[in-house]
Design a protein around this nucleic acid. Structure first.
Length: 962
DNA sequence: TCCTCCTAATTTTTT
DNA sequence: ATTAGGAGGA
């Protein structure tokens, strides 16, 4: 237990051991925030003798909660860690409401309304009242109103606008509907808990310490809850970073930091300043972005790693090209590092989940496994929702929302009109929808209108399903509970399999959907396992307060716990490992969901205006922080990219954050070459062993090209008109390359080789030809050539449309390109050439030399079309004349790998040697990508083996179609 | 009145 | 790709 302080720096130690009652730890990205918080928890238990069940720890996401629990376990052991009251704000609040809700008049079996419930309710009310608000928007307004937490009877000042009045009416109806179905929405969980703790402080009389993670994301209610939790001893620790506040849309208040200082004037603030995650280059770039916000108080952030490789800002023609480029860079990086970077090490972070499509397609086409975090949730899938809704009805039949949703699925001849009548009848009689139809079907009550024969049969069968389910649950008091059994029962009674099959004949999704249902059953089995059950009850429990009643737990609560877990997105996600082995897969995630995580290589695609300052966002500072958060997830390599045209084929402009004056010099405009020095530096940042030369040369043979040179740097289509290139400046500006530490770079006037990309632009399948496919073509062609030169030539011309198009950038690139080409033509499947890294010509190849090579270039390249100029120039002429002093050209001008004079970057060499390697042995990296902790958040299961096939085939289908 | 097939629109971020 | 909504048939 005394290893608590081990591996902490001075500031972290101070924070952990601080005797302060109220403590703020301000921790920038990668500074060991979670480490510090968990160590403090451990410290409180081990050295201050606090009892774990008297400590409340709140996080914002399930993922963070799980991760924190794991870490604390490693300090104080499983037993103690389990007893902590640790979870998301919502789950902790739920716990209190479950146990003490009776004291504030809460019915004991309330359900939780998730977003879709809320939306459905609102939609109905809006329709009924003939309003014109969008349900989603209305929900947002309601939620933010609730989150602000002003007491409901807030006096309205001034004359209410019509709009306002309408909204209030909607609000009222919404609340009434929730109450009628005995539901609480997410905000209600917090609001009711606040009410409970205010009116019954004894609930938390045991609490000795409260710790909050990501404090900058608290809204008013959460802030108040924190204070209420701690009302007995006022012992509070928070960690947070105003720069990482990205939940303003959820009413997070950065102001809470200062509010806290006011409320507890002896608050101590400790700043962590050292970043242990990212390379210097990444950190500087990120810092530059965040500092564009001038209202932000300046803050120190010290890099502890080498400068490393400069982040990349890459332009590409389209979202599809961007996706393919991304995939090719993943492959290239892996190969050039001798596969010492694994798929788990890559993350693609997106502003919005919807942007994932092109990337998923590209990864799918190449066969690279991936997982999508966020986006479509597992529990949001049609078939899962259906089953879960049945469970909800069984658990709580008075939940009319759920009843209405499932009563006619599968079809029972109970249509919209019938439902509407029944609903009105129930409302006017003051009974719930369920008890009305129960009475009707059992003949105790007359239907409000005549029901057709099939309709009343359908009604009876529905009632039957629910009653059967309820009976089963009641039986749990005498037999071991089995949610799986219940699901099975439901699935059988409603003929789920047949229903799904019928509904999805034609599309091929049935298999996947059915396997999702099976997955749900598997999860249910897990939660019902005897050991797990005890653990759950224990961890969800609250200490008994003398003289204050708790609602006791019973077996029938298993269902309740299962459903609550689903609503709060706890549990879930398929395990990241199968067959004992961790699955290697690329992570795709929203930036929001990536907070707190890190990966060696991070891609942030779609960095254009409208996406990263999102078109619907009104707080651009928050958008900037979002980009900052995304960038600071990267350890060694960061790629930003921007398609010149978005998915709607509209022109885009690069994010203003990246075109901000001065920002350009922090970026490279194409992916890095990786000479061995760079690989070494990269490995140092990642604290990994450097691969051997032979290993690298082995893997790099699989590459089509060593360089990021397939797509033009300016983002234009690959088959751009070649007349743009101008030979006159061909031999100028050859930056030194090939020296050990230099990464070949590109200048504004860099070299291009137009005649080598050639061919049949007209027949090129835009977007959908994968790199892999192209590569396979090359292989195939080369193979054929070996057999018969002539046949091959013919073949090549036939296949020309599929042939590789390319454009060469920069001197070093050209050299390596030719070397590479020679190699691959010599012996494509088993190249015997030594590593190019050292054999790469050090002398810049002259333009004419390069030209000479071109016609004799290897067979893999399709013949040049005759209509293209053969003696095309090597130098690309910028479309606009380059003025070296023009600041707007910044991006194109910086080139050498060492910073230019005047840059405020520290003069850190690329090599791993520099004194900036302040790495000391005491900082063991604990941060791991989500993929390695099995406690990841719920995600869609789209990428697990079974479903991937279907998904891919669908994508293929859609690709073919378009 | 209900079901099925077709077309059109849709995507910010999370509990 | 999914889903909502409308038209048309039973």
């Amino acid at each position: 237990m005394d290893n608590i302080l081990q591996g902490l720096n001075a500031a972290q130690r101070t924070a952990v051991e601080s005797p302060a009652a109220v403590l703020q730890v301000l921790a920038p990205p990668g500074s060991g925030k979670t480490k510090t918080l968990t160590a403090r928890v451990a410290h409180l238990i081990a050295h201050r003798q606090l009892l774990p069940w008297n400590i409340i720890v709140c996080t914002f996401t399930v993922k963070a909660a799980n991760e924190m629990k794991e870490r604390i376990k490693s300090f104080v052991g499983d037993e103690l860690a389990k007893q902590l009251k640790l979870g998301t704000f919502h789950s902790v609040a739920l716990r209190y409401l479950k146990h003490y809700g009776q004291h504030i008049g809460l019915a004991k079996d309330f359900g939780i309304a998730d977003t879709s419930d809320s939306k459905a309710i609102l939609k109905r009310i809006i329709k009924k009242l003939g309003m014109s608000i969008e349900p989603g928007q209305a929900l947002g307004r309601i939620s933010s109103r609730k989150a602000k937490g002003e007491t409901d009877s807030k006096p309205e000042k001034g004359p209410k606008s019509v709009d306002q009045q309408e909204f209030l009416r909607l609000f009222e109806e919404y609340e009434a509907t929730l109450a009628a179905s005995n539901l609480l929405d997410y905000d209600d969980l917090l609001l009711r808990c606040r009410f409970l703790l205010k009116s019954h402080p004894q609930c938390v009389s045991n609490v000795q310490a409260v710790l909050i993670d990501e404090f900058q994301d608290t809204n008013n209610i959460q802030y108040e809850l924190m204070g209420l939790f701690a009302q007995q001893h006022n012992q509070i620790t928070i960690v947070g970073d105003p720069d990482q506040s990205i939940y303003g849309f959820r009413s997070a208040e950065i102001k809470n930091l200062t509010r806290m200082k006011k409320q507890w004037p002896d608050t101590i603030t400790i700043n962590l300043e050292e970043n242990y995650r990212s390379s210097g280059a990444i950190l500087h770039a990120a810092q530059n972005i965040i500092e564009q916000d001038e209202s932000r108080p300046p803050k120190k952030l010290q890099a502890t790693h080498t400068f490393g490789l400069r982040p990349v800002l890459r332009k590409l023609p389209s979202a599809y090209a961007e996706a393919e480029w991304l995939v090719s860079e993943i492959k290239r990086m892996r190969a050039l590092c001798g596969n010492s970077i694994e798929l788990n090490d890559f993350a693609v972070l997106l502003r919005s989940a919807a942007l994932s499509r092109a990337i998923e397609t590209a990864l799918g086409n190449t066969g690279i496994p991936y997982r999508m975090v966020g986006g479509m949730r597992f529990y949001d899938r049609e078939e899962i929702k259906l089953v879960v809704d049945y469970l909800r009805v069984i658990h709580q039949p008075d939940n009319s929302e759920a009843v209405e949703r499932v009563i006619n699925v599968p079809s029972r001849m109970i249509g919209e009109a019938t439902i509407k009548k029944l609903r009105e009848e129930a409302q006017s009689k003051g009974v719930s929808f369920w008890s009305l139809i129960l009475d009707i079907s059992q003949g105790r009550r007359a239907a409000p209108m005549k029901l057709t024969e099939p309709t009343s049969k359908g009604l009876a069968s529905f009632v039957n399903v629910i009653l059967g389910g309820r009976k089963k649950v009641e039986a749990w008091s005498t037999e071991p509970p089995s949610v799986t059994g219940l699901i099975n029962l439901v699935a059988q009674k409603i003929g789920l399999e047949a229903h799904l099959r019928r509904k999805h004949t034609g599309d091929e999704t049935f298999e996947a959907r059915w396997s999702n249902v099976e997955e749900l059953m598997a999860q249910a089995t897990e939660i019902t396992a005897p050991g797990k059950l005890n653990e759950l009850v224990e961890s969800q429990g609250l200490p008994q307060i003398e003289g204050f009643d708790q609602t006791p737990e019973s077996n029938e609560d298993v269902l309740s716990v299962f459903l609550a877990n689903i609503a709060l997105t706890a549990s879930a996600e398929k395990k990241a490992e199968e067959d004992g082995e961790k699955i290697q897969q690329v992570t795709i995630s929203t930036i929001h969901a990536a907070k707190g995580l890190e990966w060696p290589v991070v891609f942030i695609p779609a960095c254009y205006d409208g996406s990263i300052p999102h078109s619907r966002a009104d707080d651009h500072d928050e958008e900037r922080r979002l980009l900052y958060v995304g960038m600071t997830r990267a350890q060694a390599l960061l790629y930003l990219s921007c398609p010149i045209k978005n998915t709607q084929r509209e022109e885009t402009t690069i994010s203003a954050f990246l075109t901000h004056p001065g920002a350009g010099r922090f970026f490279e405009e194409h992916g890095p070459s990786l000479p061995s020095s760079a690989v070494a530096s990269l490995c140092t940042t990642l604290r990994r062993d450097c691969p051997t030369e032979t290993c690298i040369s082995e893997t790099r043979k699989t590459l089509e090209s060593d360089e990021d040179n397939h797509w033009p740097l300016n983002g234009e289509e690959v088959f751009a008109d070649s007349s743009r290139w101008d030979s006159s400046t061909a031999t100028t500006a050859l930056p030194g390359f090939g020296t050990a530490r230099n990464i070949p770079t590109v200048q504004a006037s860099s070299l291009h080789q137009p005649q080598s990309y050639s061919t049949a632009s007209a027949t090129m399948k835009p977007g959908f030809t994968s790199v892999k496919e192209r590569y396979d073509d090359l292989m195939e062609q080369a193979q054929l050539r070996k057999v018969d030169k002539r046949a091959e030539e013919q073949k090549t011309s036939e296949e020309a449309p599929k042939g590789r198009k390319r454009q060469i950038e920069g001197q070093g690139t050209i050299a390596s390109f030719f070397a590479k080409k020679q190699r691959s033509s010599a012996e494509p499947s088993a190249p015997s050439q030594p590593s190019l890294k050292n054999s790469r010509p050090l002398q810049a190849m002259s333009a004419s030399a390069a030209n000479k090579h071109t016609p004799s270039a290897p067979a893999a390249r399709p013949p040049l079309p005759t209509h293209k100029p053969r003696s095309a120039p090597l130098t690309r002429k910028p479309q606009k004349p380059v003025d070296e002093n023009d600041a707007s050209q910044d991006r194109y001008v910086f080139l050498s790998s060492s910073p230019r004079k005047g840059d405020d970057e520290p003069p850190v060499p690329h090599d791993d040697e520099g004194e900036a390697t302040a790495k000391t042995g005491d900082t063991t990296p604990i941060f791991r990508p989500a993929s390695t902790s099995h406690a990841t958040s719920m995600t869609s299961v789209t990428t697990t083996r079974k479903t991937l096939g279907v998904r891919r085939s669908l994508q293929g289908w859609s690709a073919r179609k378009s």
